[in-house]
Computed example of a mutant assay.
Amino acid sequence: MSDTQSILSIAKRTLETESKAILNLVDFLDDHFAEAVQFILQSQGRVVVSGVGKSAIIASKIVATLNSTGTPAIFMHAADAIHGDLGTIQKNDVVVCISKSGNTPEIKALLPLIKIGKNKLIGITGNMDSVLAKQADFVLSTYVEKEACPNNLAPTTSTSAQLAMGDALAICLLELRGFSSADFAKYHPGGALGKKLYLRVADIVVNNQVPKVDIHSSVKEVIVEISEKMLGVTAVLENGKVVGVVTDGDIRRMLRKHDNIGELTAGDIMTKDPKSVDTDTLAVKALKTLQDNGISQLLAFENGTYAGVVHIHNLINEGIL
């Protein structure tokens, strides 16, 4: 077997092992899972997620997913909790402890302290006979037959199962809360994903100049306007109303068609019925209009009044494309 074939074989085996383990979690879902979701949903506090080692890393990711989907959460390392960070847990918080074995020393030391605080405990473990499973109010099984590691030692399949179970919790809570794309955008205002959900044409055109010429303007005036406003287009107005556009492409076609351009006006070379968009339209929808029509600019209108131009480069700069 060649090196390439060997590498691909190992990778495929790893993914198949982990995917089967995740699929097997479906059979472990029971009333405890549903009750845990309902309790978190009704809780007045946060979700405190804890673990050690690789499970702690998974816990951090689950916290990030919960926070971004409408469920307040915070990470607490189990080792730090028993050395001063136990105050992270507040009165109405729900605690989630993640441990493959359910018997790690830090988790075993933490459990009675959680009980003293009378916080509800959700255990995510691969060992249903463990201390964690026996002391938790709700137990979610993430049992796996084996790790993807050939020595069955490195946490691989087990951490994938933990992560998947955390995602299942988060998505259940998201849907039960009626968490919408608009809500999601509020939690992700800075990234490209959030921008696709909230950025509107109005947010873009306000930063652009507003190119416009009269229908009787000379070709020279048209070229100067397009050049100065740097958007590759200008709107053509007649009596204050937009009747067409002149683009870089219109200029090139004019030059190929006419030897004498001195007598031509904007009205002679413009494209009528230009594609347009309302300023309240989401930028991602404006992008689709541009792509569907194979064009680079759209005129933007606010309450029927010409407001400016949105260029595909604007959308690229915003990370929409």
Results as ranks from 00 to 15, higher is better:
83 H>S: 08
264 L>F: 06
183 D>T: 10
39 F>G: 01
148 A>E: 11
189 P>G: 13
55 S>N: 11
191 G>F: 14
38 Q>S: 09
121 L>R: 04
238 E>P: 02
249 G>A: 13
230 M>E: 11
61 K>N: 10
150 P>G: 01
261 I>C: 15
76 M>S: 03
263 E>G: 07
37 V>Q: 02
149 C>T: 13
289 T>A: 07
82 I>F: 01
252 R>P: 06
2 S>I: 00
295 I>H: 03
34 A>N: 02
306 Y>E: 00
275 K>Y: 11
181 S>K: 15
64 A>K: 03
141 S>V: 02
199 L>G: 06
25 L>V: 09
128 M>C: 13
143 Y>R: 12
213 V>D: 08
86 L>E: 00
235 A>P: 03
83 H>A: 07
4 T>F: 13
14 T>I: 09
228 E>Q: 10
276 S>F: 02
232 G>K: 06
204 I>N: 06
64 A>L: 07
93 D>N: 01
146 K>E: 11
153 L>V: 08
127 N>K: 10
140 L>G: 07
261 I>S: 09
296 S>Y: 07
271 T>W: 06
195 K>Y: 14
221 E>C: 03
269 I>D: 07
186 K>V: 14
209 Q>K: 15
155 P>Q: 03
15 L>T: 05
187 Y>S: 15
168 A>F: 11
219 V>E: 05
237 L>N: 10
159 T>Y: 03
259 D>F: 12
28 F>D: 05
318 E>R: 00
46 R>S: 11
310 V>M: 04
92 N>L: 04
9 S>R: 09
9 S>Y: 05
8 L>G: 12
160 S>Q: 07
190 G>F: 14
298 L>T: 11
316 I>S: 14
200 R>I: 12
179 F>K: 10
283 A>S: 12
270 M>G: 02
69 T>L: 08
201 V>F: 12
296 S>M: 14
175 E>R: 15
8 L>E: 07
158 S>C: 05
291 Q>M: 10
77 H>A: 09
87 G>L: 01
16 E>M: 02
179 F>H: 05
256 R>S: 14
107 I>Q: 00
38 Q>H: 08
108 K>A: 11
62 I>M: 08
310 V>W: 03
263 E>F: 14
124 I>P: 04
172 C>V: 08
36 A>I: 02
199 L>Y: 09
282 L>A: 04
286 A>L: 01
136 A>K: 05
160 S>F: 12
151 N>E: 15
140 L>H: 06
234 T>E: 11
171 I>H: 05
185 A>W: 14
118 K>H: 13
124 I>D: 06
12 K>F: 02
2 S>Q: 02
28 F>C: 06
277 V>Y: 05
4 T>H: 09
186 K>N: 12
203 D>Y: 13
253 R>L: 08
209 Q>L: 15
57 I>F: 09
98 I>N: 02
111 L>M: 11
171 I>R: 04
212 K>F: 12
58 I>T: 15
162 Q>W: 08
175 E>L: 15
235 A>Q: 08
95 V>H: 04
200 R>S: 09
210 V>R: 15
4 T>A: 13
317 N>Y: 12
284 V>H: 01
254 M>A: 14
20 K>T: 07
197 L>Q: 13
98 I>H: 00
24 N>A: 13
310 V>L: 07
177 R>V: 15
233 V>P: 01
164 A>L: 04
36 A>G: 11
127 N>H: 09
115 K>I: 13
89 I>T: 01
131 V>C: 11
137 D>P: 09
10 I>R: 15
208 N>E: 10
217 S>E: 09
261 I>P: 07
